[in-house]
């Protein structure tokens, strides 16, 4: 054991393939060309947003599996999650897939928490193919956490836009030429008393800063060892706060810092502080980052996905927003 919440993977499990699907509005994303499939209809031609949500996840899984010439029946584990009540989209996706399944909830940090668990199962030799990932569907999430989609409320500049996207990765034992999972850090819930659900980035920034410093000191690395350190969905406001918090802990060099949420929709002001949602980090990690690692542009990457662990009820009961961040380190040898 290296330390509390610190994991190292000696067998270096690999991300052998990824699948990313996204909604029609995500054609406005800076990364749209890197997504495997972009739908023309928000509901993917189905009756409800929730069905579309499950369909996006199914398609992402099928795409990832097809890239390694496999069928759902070849996969050993399905470790996915989303933000809808009791994660029904993931559950329905798992029904269709028929892969042994554990639903995971770490809010928007599920992309990394699922990767960590998939890597562990692979490390101990219990899994040949494990599918990990997360997804979110704007309309389904908005109606659950905020207002009906058609309700005319004014969102402040700190608000983030829940993406419609699903990102999954197929984790296999070490494979040459593919990014491998070197080590990871499981986050602690951090809560600095933020209560504004329209400024989630500010709530999550302390968790990201905490996990980053724990990862660096725990695994004995420094920020300059990485080509990029990418947080999940802090958004433009949260990303600035995170850099300040990190500077406070003595890390001034933030030139290789990136944030998936802040970059997702580029500079388009109609998306306010940027993207959020479980699909946000998953979609970017498993397209942009995965590709750049495969072509050798990035050799060592630290991914820190952040999640706000609130519910509409906890907000109405005037609780603060507890947040989590999980980190995973990928290398390309």
């Amino acid at each position: 054991m290296v330390g509390r919440g610190l994991l190292t993977f000696k067998t270096l499990p690999s991300i052998s393939a990824t699948g990313v699907t996204a909604g029609p509005l995500e054609k406005k994303s800076s990364f749209k060309d890197k997504f495997d499939k972009v739908y023309d209809d928000e509901r993917c031609g189905l009756e409800t947003n929730e069905h579309a949500h499950a369909k996006m996840m199914e398609d992402a899984c099928m795409i990832a599996l097809s890239k390694i010439d496999s069928l759902p029946s070849d996969a050993d584990y399905l470790l996915i999650g989303d933000l809808v009540n009791q994660m029904t989209p993931s559950n329905f996706c798992a029904t269709t897939m028929g892969i042994p399944y554990i639903g995971l909830f770490s809010a928007c940090a599920t992309s990394v928490s699922s990767l960590i668990l998939a890597a562990l199962l692979t490390e101990v030799g219990m899994s040949e193919i494990a599918i990990a990932g997360a997804a979110s569907q704007h309309n389904a999430i908005e109606r659950q956490f905020r207002y009906p989609v058609e309700y005319g409320s004014q969102k402040p500049a700190t608000a983030q836009w829940t993406v419609t996207a699903a990102g999954v990765a197929a984790i296999t034992p070490h494979k040459k030429g593919f990014p491998s999972i070197e080590c990871a850090t499981i986050g602690c819930v951090t809560d600095l008393g933020m209560t504004d659900p329209f400024n989630m980035g500010a709530a999550m920034a302390p968790a990201a800063a905490d996990t980053l410093t724990r990862h660096l000191s725990g695994h004995g690395t420094s920020v300059n060892d990485y080509d990029v350190i990418m947080t999940g969905d802090l958004g433009k406001t949260g990303f600035e706060l995170y850099k300040k918090l990190v500077a406070n802990k003595g890390i001034d060099d933030t030139k290789n810092f990136r944030d998936a949420g802040a970059e997702f929709y580029g500079k388009d002001p109609s998306f306010l502080a940027g993207a959020s949602g479980a699909g946000c980090s998953a979609a970017i990690y498993f397209s942009e980052i995965f590709e750049k690692m495969k072509i050798g542009k990035y050799k060592r990457v630290l991914l820190i996905a952040t999640g706000a662990l609130l519910s509409p009820m906890s907000f109405q009961q005037e609780d603060t927003i507890p947040c989590i961040a999980h980190a995973i380190e990928l290398t390309m040898k």
Binding site: Q154, P156, A157, T158, L192, G193, M194, N199, A202, P206, T237, E240, L241, K244, L245, N248
Partner: peptide, 23 residues
């Protein structure tokens, strides 16, 4: 960093509400 300090930092960094424009 404690809650009070962070609340202050958050106020500093978060974009201000454009009150006159909104009104």
């Amino acid at each position: 960093m404690d809650e009070k300090k962070y609340a202050k930092l958050e106020q500093e960094i978060s974009p201000k509400i454009p009150l006159m424009k909104n009104i």
